[in-house]
Design a binder for these strands. Structure first.
Length: 1149
RNA sequence: GGGCGAUUAGCUCAGUUGGUUAGAGCGUCUGGUUUACACCCAGAAGGUCGGCGGUUCGAGCCCGUCAUCGCCCACCA
C-alpha cells in the first residue's frame, strides 16, 4: 500500500478544518480576484490564435496528454489567469474530453463534439465558450449576451449588525450561480460590500449611547456621533465580511465597497449633480413622517402601522354668534385631540345630502355583489348611514353647510381662536359626526384641504416632539402629556361631548419604534415622472426579467404611482446633500465665481429667497469672495447611494475597464421587501447614469420564517446566526439545506431549537426564551449562552447552538459524499499496487516517464488510457446516461434559479443512484483483476463530475475531495473552483438503458423484500430464478454477480422456460415472475396468504383499468396513452395469473 | 379596501405542459458489524391531495365557490 493520505481519511467529514484550509487556499491563490491590468484581452480568443502563448507554453498544445498530467504546475500555473482565460480551462478539459471520448466510443456512442477533441489540436472544438457550455446545457443566449463576462453585486448588508440566516440564504444563492459561471469559464466577478444604512445604523448607535451613557446625540455633537458610528461600522463590517467568508462566498474581497466610502461618495455626488442640472431636484414644504426620537423625516416605506387601543374624542367647537335655529356647537371626532391647537378650520361637506345618497347607493350595489358573509356587516353599515338621513344628522349638516357658505366661524376651544367653518368635500357626511377638524400642518389630508382653501398652516410641534409656542400654555409639553391636559381642560370646560374606546392604526417609525408625527417640514425631492417611466419600460419590454414573474406587478404598480422621492434625512450619518446656500449674492457674481466650471450648478430659490449652489466635486465654504456658503445640513436617503450600487462599485462615473467589462451585471439576487425601494431605484438610477440597465435578471428568493411562520427579525429575537449553525453542522450543510429549500413560491420555514452544550438535550426555542442572553437547560439545569449574550459573565458560558432537522439531513448528505469519495480513493489506491493487470495500463513513452518513480506510477494508473476503453456493461452505460441527464438538468435548473429542483436531483442522483446502486455494483468488479482498473476509472470519472456539479453548493467538502483526487490524478485543475463545469454528453443519454436498468432494480428489490418479509437471516444465501423474455434474460445475465453481492442471492436461471421450485416464493412483476427458492425456510400458509393479498390488490387495479378501457377513454384519449393502459392491464393480468397459479401449486403441497 | 401566496403522510415539504398504483427527508415499525459511510444499510406501515361544485375520456394540477393561514400595498374623523 502506498503511504498516502487515503489511510488517514477520517470516517466522518470534518468541516471545520476543511473550511479553514480551503478558505485560506482560495484567498492565497486569489482564485476569485479579477485583475484587469494589463488590459483584458478578448477572453473568447482561443489560445491557439495567440502564437506567442502557444509557443510559451507547450503544455497547452497538449500533443502529449501525459505531459499535461505530469506537470500540474503547467496546467494551472496561475489560477487568476485561468479565471481570466477560459481558453486555458478548455485546454485542460481536452484531456477530460479524451477520456470521455474513449469511454463513449467504447460504449458505441460517438459524441460528435467530443470526437473532435483531438489532442493534437486542442483548439478544434474548444475554441469558444459555447463549446464548453453548449446551448443545450445553458438554456438561452445569456452567455452571448454577456459576452463572456459575468458579474454579480452583493445586496450590501446593513452595517447595523451581524448577518442572520436570511443573509446566509441570499448569499448562498448568489454564490451558487457565481461559482457555476466561473467554472463555466466566464470572466466572473462578485463584488462584496456593506451599506451604511443611514437611519438604521444611527438609530442603533444612538440608542446604545443613551442606554450606556444616558447621552443623546445633541449632547455629544455631530462630529463625535459620526465618529462613534464609524467605529460601529468598522466593527460590523469586519464581522459581516468574516461571516461571508465563513459562508464560502467567492467574492473578490479586494473590491469590497462601502456605500459611504470615497468611491461611492463620488458616484453619489455625480448622480445628484446630474439630477440637479436636469431640474429633477426640488425642495418644498411637505408634510413628512416625523420621527420624534431620531428627529428626522422618514419615508412612507419606513413607517409601519400598528394596531393599538385608542379613543375617539368628540369635541364641541362653539359656533360664533349662532343665529336662531342654528346649532350652538359643531361636534368633531378625533383620535388626536391635542392637534386641535393647530386647527385652522372645521369642514363640512358642501352638499351633505347628495354625498350621503351616493354613499348609500354605493353601499347597496356593493351589498348586491358582496359574498354572503360580508353582507351582514355591510347591511348594518347601510342601516347606520340611512339612519343619518332621518335622525337629524343630515339636517344638522345641511344647516352647517349653509353656514359654511355664509362664511361663519367657530371658536377653537382652549386656543380661543376663531376659525372658519368651510365647505369641502373631504368632510364625509357618513363618517364621524360628518364634520372634521382641519389641521393642515399635522395631517396629510388636512394639508391638502388647507392648500385648497388657502388656510394658514400652524405647526405646533418642535422637532423633538414637544409642543412649541403656537400651543400657547401647552408649550413644552410632550405630545402624550399635552393630550392628557387637552382632554382634561376640554372636559372641565364642558366641551368634551363624548368619548369612545376604539382600536386605531397608529403609524410607527420602523427604526425607532416610536409613533410618527406628521409634520410640515422642508424636504428635498427627486421628481419621479420620467425616471420611474424608464424603470417601468425596461421591465415591460423584457430588457429586465423579474423571477418569479409574479413580482413584476408589484414593481410596476409601485413605480406607476410616480410619487416623488423624498431624499433628505435630518440625520448625521450619510452622504451630506451637496448643496450650499448663499443669500446675499447675485447672478453675475456667481457667473464670475464659477466661470467655466462644469462641476457647479446654481439656482435661485424663490421660496427661500436664497441661491442653491450644487457642487459635484469640491466643498464650497468660501467659493465666492466675501460670502460664506453654508452647506445643507441634511443627508441623503440611504437608497440614494445604494441605487448606484451596480455601477458605483465598478468605478462609475469613471469609465473604468471594470465598468466596460462587467456592466450591465448578470443577475441581482435579493429579497422581496426591497424590490421597490432598492431594485426599482437601481434600475432608474442605472438607466439615468449609464443609459444601460443595471442587470439582466432579478431573482427574488424566499423569506426565512421561524417555526411559528414568522419572519426573522432582530426585534423578535428569532434571527439565527448562520455561523452558529455552521459551527454545528458545517457550512456546506447550511448551504445545502438552504438551497434545497429554495422553491419558487414557498417561504422557507425552519424549526430550530437550542442544543444544550452540557448535556446535548434539545431545548425548544420559544417566543419567551429566544430573546434571552442565556438559557437554563431544563434537563441538566445548567446555563448556556445564546447569540444575544453581551455581558461578560454570560459570554463565559458555552454557547447553545441552533439545531434543526433540515441541517442534519444536509450534513448527512455531505458525509455521504465524503464517504463515497473515500471509497473511490481507497479503490484507486489499492489498484495502483497491482497495476499490471489491465490492457489500459500501457506504459508511457514520454521523456518524463523515463525516470519513473512511485509517485508517478500511482498517479497515472487510471489515466494511461491510450487504448480504447470499452464500457459495454449495462451499469456503466446506465450511470453515464444518468450522469449526462443530471449534468444537463442541473445546469439548466441553476441557470433558471430552480435551486430546490437542482438540489433534489443532485441529492437523489448522488445517494440513490451513485452510492446505493453504482458503487455497490462496482464493488464486485473491484475484486476482479480483469475489471478493476476500468471500474475504478469509471468511479473516478463519475465522481469528478459529481463533485464539480456539487461544488457551487457545497464548496468545502468538494474542494477537500478534489484535492485528494488530485493526489491520484494530477491532471485535475488546481482547484475545483476553477475546474471546467461538466458538459452533458447528450449522446450518452439513453432512455432505453435507463429503462432496462429499472428491471434490475425491480428484481433486486423483489428479492430483498422477499428476504426481509420472510426473516431470512442476512448471512443465509438464497437462490432464485426468473421467468422472463429472452431479451430480459440476455440483459440480466451479465449482472448475476450483483445479486450475490447486493442481496446475497444466487441466480439459477433466466428465461421463458424457468419454473418455480417446489418450495418457492413467487413475486409476479410486470413482464416476469421471480421464484425465490425457500426450501426449509418456507411457510406455505404464509406464502399463500401473501399471494392472496397480492391478488386482491391486483384485482382492484385490473377492474379499474378495465372500466377505464371500456369507457370513452379509448375513443378520446391519445392512442399512445390508450396503448400504455392496455399494456399495463395486460401486465397486471399476467401478474394476477402468476399469483393464482402459484397459490394452486402451493395448495398441492 | 386592493394584490400575492399557501392548504398533499404524524412533522417539514416536493409534485414539470392534466395521463399507469401521488413522492422525499425526519419520525414510527422490522431486520442488519456486507471491500466507504450507524451522520449507515435493507425493508415496511402511513395519504378519500382543506370542503363543495364544474370542465374533461381522465383533475393534486384547469375553472368557480367556500373555509383557514400567511405576506405585501393603500386607507380610516
Amino acid at each position: 500500500m502506498n503511504n498516502t493520505t487515503n489511510q488517514e481519511l477520517p470516517k466522518q467529514y470534518e468541516p471545520t478544518t476543511a473550511q479553514e484550509k480551503w478558505s485560506r487556499f482560495w484567498d492565497e491563490k486569489k482564485l476569485f480576484q479579477i485583475n484587469l491590468t494589463p488590459p483584458q484581452t478578448n477572453i473568447t480568443t482561443n489560445i491557439a490564435d495567440d502564437p506567442a502563448r502557444v509557443a510559451d507554453d507547450p503544455a497547452h498544445v497538449a500533443n502529449d496528454p501525459a505531459h499535461v498530467v505530469n506537470d500540474p504546475a503547467h496546467v494551472v500555473s496561475d489560477p487568476a489567469h485561468v479565471v481570466n482565460d477560459p481558453a486555458r480551462v478548455v485546454g485542460d478539459s481536452a484531456l477530460y474530453g479524451k477520456i470521455l471520448d474513449n469511454v463513449v466510443k467504447g460504449v458505441g456512442i460517438v459524441d460528435q463534439d467530443c470526437a473532435q477533441v483531438d489532442l493534437q489540436k486542442p483548439d478544434s472544438s474548444c475554441v469558444k465558450l459555447d463549446s464548453i457550455c453548449p446551448k443545450s446545457s445553458c438554456g438561452d443566449s445569456q452567455h452571448r449576451r454577456l459576452k463572456g463576462a459575468f458579474c454579480v453585486v452583493i445586496p450590501p448588508p446593513n452595517v447595523t449588525g451581524a448577518l442572520h440566516l436570511g443573509h446566509a440564504l441570499n448569499n448562498t444563492l448568489q454564490d451558487i450561480i457565481v461559482r457555476m459561471k466561473r467554472m463555466q469559464g466566464f470572466n466572473t466577478l462578485w463584488i462584496p460590500g456593506v451599506d451604511h444604512a443611514g437611519i438604521a445604523t444611527q438609530a442603533v448607535v444612538e440608542r446604545r449611547l443613551f442606554e450606556q451613557e444616558k447621552l443623546t446625540r445633541h449632547d455629544i455633537g455631530r462630529e463625535a456621533l459620526v465618529k462613534k458610528i464609524w467605529n460601529w461600522k468598522e466593527k460590523y463590517q469586519a464581522r459581516i465580511i468574516e461571516q461571508l467568508k465563513a459562508l464560502g462566498c467567492s467574492c473578490d474581497w479586494s473590491r469590497t465597497r462601502f456605500t459611504l466610502d470615497d468611491v461611492c461618495a463620488k458616484a453619489v455626488r455625480h448622480f445628484f449633480f446630474r439630477l440637479f442640472q436636469d431640474d429633477l431636484i426640488y425642495r418644498g414644504k411637505r408634510l413628512v413622517n416625523w420621527d420624534t426620537f431620531l428627529q428626522t423625516a422618514v419615508s412612507d416605506d419606513e413607517v409601519t402601522h400598528e394596531t393599538v387601543a385608542g379613543h375617539f374624542w368628540y369635541i364641541k367647537y362653539p359656533v360664533v354668534n349662532p343665529k336662531r335655529n342654528e346649532p350652538e356647537f359643531v361636534i368633531v371626532a378625533t383620535t388626536r385631540p391635542e392637534t386641535l391647537l393647530g386647527d385652522t378650520a372645521v369642514a363640512v361637506h358642501p352638499d351633505p345630502e347628495a354625498a350621503l345618497n351616493k354613499v348609500i347607493d354605493d353601499l347597496r350595489s356593493r351589498i348586491a355583489d358582496a359574498p354572503e358573509k360580508e353582507k351582514a356587516e355591510l347591511e348594518s353599515e347601510l342601516e347606520k348611514v340611512v339612519l343619518r338621513k332621518t335622525s337629524g344628522v343630515l339636517a344638522n349638516l345641511t344647516t352647517l353647510a349653509e353656514m359654511a357658505k355664509d362664511g361663519r366661524k367657530v371658536l377653537l376651544p382652549l386656543a380661543q381662536r376663531e376659525i372658519p367653518l368651510i365647505a369641502d368635500t373631504w368632510a364625509k357626511p357618513d363618517k364621524g359626526t360628518g364634520c372634521v377638524k382641519i389641521t393642515p400642518a399635522h395631517d396629510p389630508n388636512d394639508y391638502e384641504v388647507g392648500k385648497r382653501n388657502g388656510l394658514p398652516m400652524i405647526n405646533i410641534l418642535n422637532k423633538d416632539g414637544t409642543l412649541n409656542k403656537e400651543a400657547g400654555s401647552y408649550e413644552g409639553l410632550k405630545i402624550k402629556d399635552a393630550r392628557l391636559k387637552v382632554i382634561d381642560d376640554l372636559t372641565q370646560n364642558g366641551l368634551m361631548h363624548d368619548t369612545e374606546e376604539r382600536t386605531i392604526e397608529l403609524a410607527h417609525s420602523d427604526r425607532s419604534k416610536t409613533p410618527i408625527e406628521p409634520l410640515l417640514n422642508d424636504q428635498w425631492f427627486v421628481k419621479m415622472e420620467s425616471l420611474a417611466q424608464s424603470a417601468i419600460n425596461t421591465v415591460n419590454n423584457g430588457e429586465i426579467k423579474i423571477i418569479p414573474e409574479r413580482y413584476t406587478k408589484g414593481y410596476i404598480d409601485w413605480l406607476a404611482e410616480k410619487r416623488d422621492w423624498p431624499i433628505g434625512r435630518q440625520l448625521w450619518w450619510g452622504h451630506r446633500i451637496p448643496i450650499w446656500y448663499c443669500k446675499n449674492t447675485t447672478e453675475s457674481e456667481l457667473k464670475q465665481a464659477f466661470a467655466n466650471r462644469e462641476d457647479i450648478a446654481y439656482k435661485w430659490d424663490e421660496a427661500g429667497q436664497v441661491w442653491w449652489i450644487c457642487s459635484r466635486d469640491e466643498e464650497l465654504p468660501s467659493a465666492i469672495k466675501g460670502h460664506t456658503l453654508v452647506q445643507e445640513e441634511d443627508v441623503l436617503d440611504t437608497w440614494f447611494s445604494s441605487a448606484l450600487w451596480t455601477h458605483s462599485t465598478l468605478g462609475w462615473p469613471n469609465q473604468t475597464p471594470e465598468l466596460e467589462t462587467f456592466y450591465p451585471t448578470g443577475v441581482l439576487i435579493t429579497n422581496r421587501d426591497i424590490l421597490t425601494l432598492w431594485v426599482a431605484r437601481m434600475v432608474l438610477a442605472g438607466k439615468f447614469n449609464t443609459g444601460k440597465i443595471p442587470f439582466h435578471e432579478v431573482y427574488i428568493h424566499p423569506k426565512i420564517l421561524d417555526k411559528y411562520g414568522e419572519g426573522m427579525s432582530k426585534s423578535k429575537g428569532n434571527g439565527v446566526d448562520p455561523v452558529s449553525v455552521a459551527a454545528k453542522f458545517g457550512t456546506d450543510a447550511l448551504r445545502f439545506a438552504l438551497a434545497y429549500l429554495t422553491t419558487e413560491n414557498q417561504d422557507i420555514r425552519l424549526a430550530l431549537d437550542f442544543e444544550c452544550p452540557h448535556c446535548n438535550a434539545i431545548v425548544e426555542q420559544t417566543k419567551q426564551n429566544r430573546v434571552l442572553p442565556k438559557i437554563k437547560c431544563p434537563k441538566c439545569q445548567k446555563h448556556f449562552r445564546t447569540q444575544w449574550a453581551e455581558r461578560e459573565d454570560d459570554l463565559q458560558l458555552p454557547e447553545g447552538v441552533m439545531v434543526g432537522e433540515r441541517f442534519e439531513t444536509a450534513r448527512n448528505f455531505c458525509n455521504k459524499l465524503w464517504n463515497a469519495a473515500r471509497f473511490v480513493l481507497l479503490t484507486l489506491n489499492s489498484n495502483s499496487n497491482s497495476a499490471d493487470n489491465t490492457p489500459d495500463n500501457t506504459p508511457d513513452n514520454t521523456p518524463d516517464k523515463k525516470q519513473p518513480d512511485k509517485q508517478d506510477s500511482k498517479q497515472h494508473i487510471v489515466y494511461r488510457t491510450k487504448n480504447e476503453l470499452t464500457a459495454e456493461l449495462l451499469e456503466d452505460k446506465w450511470i453515464l446516461s444518468r450522469l449526462a441527464t443530471v449534468t444537463r438538468d442541473v445546469s439548466q435548473m441553476f441557470e433558471t434559479y430552480r435551486y430546490a429542483d437542482a438540489m433534489r436531483l443532485l441529492y437523489d442522483f448522488s445517494w440513490d443512484e451513485f452510492c446505493s446502486f453504482y458503487l455497490e455494483i462496482v464493488k464486485s468488479r473491484l475484486s476482479d483483476v480483469r475489471q478493476n482498473n476500468f471500474a475504478s476509472f469509471m468511479l473516478l470519472f463519475v465522481l469528478c463530475d459529481l463533485v464539480k456539479l456539487l461544488h457551487p453548493v457545497v464548496p468545502f467538502v468538494t474542494e477537500e475531495i478534489w484535492q485528494r483526487l488530485r493526489e491520484v490524478d494530477s491532471g485535475l485543475e488546481e482547484s475545483v473552483a476553477v475546474a471546467a463545469w461538466p458538459v452533458a454528453n447528450e449522446t450518452a443519454i439513453n432512455p432505453q438503458i435507463e429503462e432496462q436498468f429499472k428491471i434490475f432494480q425491480e428484481i433486486l428489490r423483489a428479492i430483498r423484500d422477499t428476504r426481509a418479509s420472510r426473516n431470512i437471516p442476512p448471512k443465509t444465501e438464497i437462490s432464485f430464478c426468473v421467468k422472463c423474455s429472452e431479451v430480459v434474460s440476455k440483459l440480466m445475465k451479465p449482472m448475476e454477480a450483483y445479486f450475490l453481492t447486493m442481496a446475497r442471492a444466487k441466480v439459477t436461471g433466466w428465461g421463458e422456460s424457468q419454473k418455480a421450485p417446489l418450495l418457492a416464493a413467487t413475486v409476479p412483476l410486470a413482464g416476469m415472475d421471480i421464484y425465490v427458492d425457500l426450501s426449509e425456510l418456507m411457510d406455505v400458509s404464509a406464502e399463500i396468504e401473501k399471494l392472496e393479498k397480492e391478488m386482491s390488490k391486483l384485482d382492484g387495479f385490473i377492474k379499474s383499468k378495465q372500466t377505464k378501457l371500456n369507457s370513452d377513454f379509448t375513443q378520446k384519449a391519445p392512442p399512445a396513452i390508450v396503448e400504455k393502459e392496455r399494456q399495463s392491464l395486460n401486465d397486471l393480468q399476467n401478474q394476477y395469473n402468476s399469483a393464482k397459479n402459484a397459490i394452486e401449486k402451493l395448495k398441492q403441497i
